[in-house]
Amino acid sequence: MILPWGCDNPVSAAIDMTHGYLYIGTLTSPGRIVAIRLSDFTVVKTLILTAGEDFLYGMAIDVEAGFLYVSTYAAPPEIIKIGLIITSLDQFTKLDKISLV
């Protein structure tokens, strides 16, 4: 699979086997998160973060709570909280972030 334009250098990944999605973070500026549906191995949505939210080396998933967390390789770094796709693609959105200052 070739990722959508701009989604270069995948560097982090997390899987939600319960709901059937794979999430990929990119080493780009700004960072991007790609949601891939496992059943047909198709990109269903790409989340483009805002400027400064770059280089998503870190990714962790909490399927039970329904959240994905990505971190930025920056100073100061940020941790961004993203909703997982449970029933709707609209749920895959940036919910919150903290800056570790």
């Binding site: 962790a60 971190s71 920056a74 100073a75 941790i79």
Partner: peptide
Amino acid sequence: GQATQYIVPLTIDK
């Protein structure tokens, strides 16, 4: 200082 920089590994204890 900043509460760390340049995060690479990230994990959670659910």
